[in-house]
């Protein structure tokens, strides 16, 4: 029988080479930035307002095209920074030549938001350190912080939500950690599990009960999906489900106390509920 090699079409090949499926988490972060924009200034919206307008001369470093709305610029950079994926394949030796389109796209990202993209690139190189330096618990933690900078970067450098830095640190350690465990990619499962459990443990300090409920409801199916496709991941799904279901239980019991940080340091967690853009129809 003649061997069939399925060559993907040009568009499909572009989607695969540039890993366009990663737009799912990236666009979620962009939408989160949009959601917070009205809190920075009530006149801001996804299509209006430069978040760096009060930065004085520094604003031109953060966003040289100062006349464009930051909401749209960050959306555009989520697409253009996908040039990093072929760059990654080139670094790993999977492709011989660095594709020109990738270089142009990365260059374009730097033009759009130089500071954000510089930190995202730093994050990317941090995730590579386990390969280039050594894989031990320390560099694995650095790898997770690299994920924070690369994927959550817009939340901080465009959304300016710096109060989220500590919880997102634990979140990135937890998410990256549980992936490492499921993929047998960690040099110490014990330490990685420890950092994974710090994530749910840290949540009551920074979030109120409804926010925790949202995290539970979103994160369980997001992880469980792996085991629906390949049931040999079931134990990871089971641990994550029971851990976050317990977190939900704790959030219900502790309702009036949350977030705990505000008890000890009043005002630590700033008000951060944006006005509703589209009201419920009932």
């Amino acid at each position: 029988m003649e061997e069939q090699t399925e060559e993907p079409g040009l568009v499909m090949k572009f989607f695969q080479d540039y890993r366009m499926k990663m737009l799912i988490p990236e666009l979620l972060v962009v939408f989160a930035v949009w959601y917070f924009l009205p809190l920075l200034d009530s006149s801001f919206s996804p299509i209006a307002g430069n978040v760096y307008q009060d930065f004085g001369v520094l604003q031109y470093f953060f966003q040289p095209l100062f006349f464009l709305p930051s909401g749209l610029v960050v959306l555009a950079s989520a697409f253009t920074l996908h040039g990093i994926y072929p760059l990654d394949n080139y670094h790993e030796g999977k492709i011989d030549k660095l594709p020109k389109t990738a270089v142009i796209l990365i260059g374009l990202s730097f033009v759009l938001l130089p500071i954000l993209v510089a930190f995202q690139m730093l994050g990317y190189y941090m995730t590579e350190m386990t390969e280039f330096v050594s894989r031990n618990p320390l560099w694995e933690r650095v790898e997770s912080v690299g994920d924070l900078l690369f994927y959550a970067g817009p939340m901080f450098f465009v959304g300016l939500q710096w109060w989220l830095l500590i919880p997102v640190f634990f979140l990135s350690q937890g998410i990256d950690g549980i992936h490492k465990i499921a993929h047998h990619e960690t040099s110490s499962e014990k330490i990685t599990w420890l950092f994974y459990f710090l994530w749910p443990l840290s949540m009551p300090f920074f979030f109120d009960s409804v926010e925790i409920m949202a995290m539970v409801a979103l994160s369980i199916p997001a992880f469980a999906f792996y085991s629906y496709v390949r049931p040999y991941y079931t134990y990871v799904t089971s641990i994550h489900t029971i851990t976050f279901a317990s977190l939900l239980l704790i959030a219900v019991v502790l309702v009036p106390l949350l977030p705990l940080m505000n008890i000890w340091f009043p005002g630590f967690i700033l008000p951060h509920i944006p006005p509703r853009v589209i009201p419920w129809p009932f």
Binding site: D208, S209, V210, M213, V216, A217, I220, T234, T237, S238, I239, T241, I242, F244, A245, S246, L248, L249, V252, V255, I273
Partner: peptide, 24 residues
């Protein structure tokens, strides 16, 4: 363990809605 985790959610989500434990 997976069944237990799902069961806890099956109980808690409707409970917080019926008894309006959260306001947000």
């Amino acid at each position: 363990i997976l069944i237990l985790g799902i069961l806890i959610q099956v109980i808690i989500y409707p409970t917080v809605w019926i008894f309006q434990i959260f306001t947000h």
